[in-house]
Amino acid sequence: MSQNVYEPPPGSPPPSLVDLPPPYTPNATRGAATEPPIWEPNFIDLTSQFDGAPDTHRKPLDPPPDCFSTPSPLRVKAHDFPPFRIPSISDKLAGGFRILYPSHLLEKHGISQPDWIRFLEDIGIAARLAIEGLSAVGSRTPVTSLPARGIFSSRVMGVAYDSHFTRSPKDEVQALLGVWNQSAFERRKLRVTLQTIGEGGTRSGYELLVESL
């Protein structure tokens, strides 16, 4: 039984050169074009309404924020949005974070705009207080000073707070995040964590990762 065998036209290149795909060459733009864009919610940017310098005259948890005591919504959806990030204003935690409020996401979880502004402001205040040797979370055991003698006795008598406070601004911010998560966010199916921006030990700033649980 005869078989029909394909014969290339005269002058054609060998079949091995026709059938093989072209050699692969790396293309930097090829991968970037196919990667999906980074998702980001529609923020209400209120950063310009604040000077960026935390007000250390107000204590973050004194009095407690309103959302610590207000009830959660009756029905809160889980995993209803992808994680998003709030960047720091500078590479220092004391500089605070940008005041970005994604109203269409957080309102459904019972976090109002004043609640969120208070939270972001408290983070910067806590870091600023830590630099000054003060704590917004814990480490507030009063130490009674001994009465001093002399002309300055009436000025130095009293109670000193945080005389042995050694927590870093990062540790203090993480401690404050723990209070907010336990008291306000987690029962509303939210969680906020602090992350460092940078690779290889080179820090270029911080960001708050907001997740729907």
Rank of each mutant, 00 (worst) to 15 (best):
P10L: 13
P10C: 12
P10E: 08
G11A: 14
P13G: 14
P13A: 05
P13K: 01
P14D: 15
P14L: 13
S16I: 08
D19S: 14
P21E: 10
P21A: 11
P23I: 03
Y24F: 11
T25H: 14
T25N: 14
P26D: 10
P26H: 09
A28L: 06
T29R: 10
T34C: 06
T34G: 07
E35G: 05
E35T: 10
P37D: 08
P37C: 04
P37Q: 05
I38W: 06
I38H: 14
W39S: 02
I44A: 06
D45H: 02
T47G: 00
T47F: 04
S48R: 13
G52Q: 01
G52Y: 04
A53W: 13
T56E: 15
H57C: 13
K59N: 12
P60C: 12
L61I: 00
P63D: 01
D66Y: 04
F68G: 02
F68M: 01
T70I: 09
T70G: 00
P71W: 03
P71G: 02
S72C: 04
P73M: 02
L74D: 08
H79C: 07
H79Q: 03
D80C: 00
F81G: 00
F84K: 00
R85V: 11
R85D: 08
I86N: 00
I86D: 04
I89G: 04
S90Q: 05
K92C: 09
G95S: 07
G95T: 04
R98I: 04
R98T: 12
R98C: 13
I99E: 14
